[in-house]
């Protein structure tokens, strides 16, 4: 089972749901922090860092002696990472997406590829949880490429929970593709509802089965509940607006450890997820 925990709106509780769910499972689980622009799942685990891998993409390096300034590579690049004016092109690696197209279209074999670092994937282990946490380097914009690198480290046959980046842009879609079930975390506010609708549109487009968790129930209004009912979207868990949860979060503690009465909620959530995922249909 590969579960993605996503949301439209940021700050609804994706990471809280992911880490608490991973903890109550009790069996070995892979937790993937795919929010590579601001990974934070490791803050809630007490395990230790056991490894760090550098992640790079291949960017062009042009041999000026072999280049005849034909501009084929410059014309091919859709990311404006190459520039020329009837000269050997200049390379802007920070704009390159590593597609390798320039190397293929070069008729003079003047382009070699070299590594350009975009970030790291760190591995932490805490009891039953193995966390792979992607961290994009400052100033790099290739979040999706790093998400793919994090997901490439998934081991088959072991339950996986993917903590997705907020929003519905490329890094979120890169996280969601290929998972078995998506949990959309929202809050019962107008903003939460607005962004939930965007997230629902996205997972429906991807034809993935999904359900909703409503966090901080008690604030806002009833519109998120009404929307889910109208759209026949299952609400798998409601978490009350409980100040003690915020306090535990601010100390980097898991809800299920600081407030054991919530443990059963997360266990039931997992049962509901496996039950819903078994249906295999998109609501």
């Amino acid at each position: 089972m590969i579960l993605a925990v996503a949301s439209g709106k940021g700050g609804t509780g994706k990471t809280s749901i992911s880490v608490n769910l991973a903890k109550v499972l009790g069996v070995p689980v892979q937790l993937l922090d795919c929010d590579v622009e601001e990974p934070n799942a490791h803050l809630f685990l007490r395990g230790s860092l056991i490894g760090e891998e550098e992640i790079s993409i291949s960017v062009p390096e042009i041999d000026a002696a072999a280049c005849n300034a034909c501009d084929e590579c410059v014309d091919f690049c859709q990311f404006n990472a190459l520039a020329s004016f009837c000269s050997t092109p200049l390379v802007f690696p920070e704009l390159c997406h590593g597609c390798g197209g320039c190397t293929l279209v070069c008729t003079r074999n003047a382009i070699r590829e070299k590594d350009f670092r975009i970030g790291v994937v760190r591995t932490f282990v805490d009891e039953n949880i193995t966390l792979k946490s992607g961290c994009l380097d400052v100033g790099v914009s290739l979040a999706s490429a790093l998400v793919h690198s994090v997901k490439a480290r998934l081991e088959e046959g072991i339950t996986a929970i993917l903590d997705a980046p907020p929003g519905t842009a490329c890094p979120a879609v890169a996280t969601l593709r290929g998972v078995d079930y998506v949990l959309l975390v929202t809050e019962p506010t107008p903003f939460g509802l607005h962004d939930l609708k965007l997230a629902v549109d996205t997972v429906r487009e991807l034809r993935l089965p999904f359900g909703v968790v409503i966090n901080r129930v008690g604030i806002g209004d009833e519109r998120v509940h009404r929307y889910c009912a109208q759209e026949h979207i299952p609400v798998l868990l409601e978490i009350p607006d409980d100040r003690r949860i915020a306090e535990a979060y601010s100390r980097g503690q898991l809800i299920v450890e600081a407030l054991p009465e919530y443990r059963a909620h997360f266990e039931r959530l997992w049962q509901a997820i496996t039950h819903e995922a078994g249906k295999g249909t998109t609501p």
């Binding site: 410059v74 990311f79 404006n80 990472a81 520039a83 020329s84 004016f85 009837c86 200049l90 802007f92 704009l95 914009s141």
Partner: peptide, 16 residues
């Protein structure tokens, strides 16, 4: 309307 690299392209345009 470029998603990225507008300055690079503009510089190329006037260079040409």
């Amino acid at each position: 309307d470029a998603a990225q690299g507008a300055g690079i392209q503009s510089a190329q345009l006037i260079a040409k």
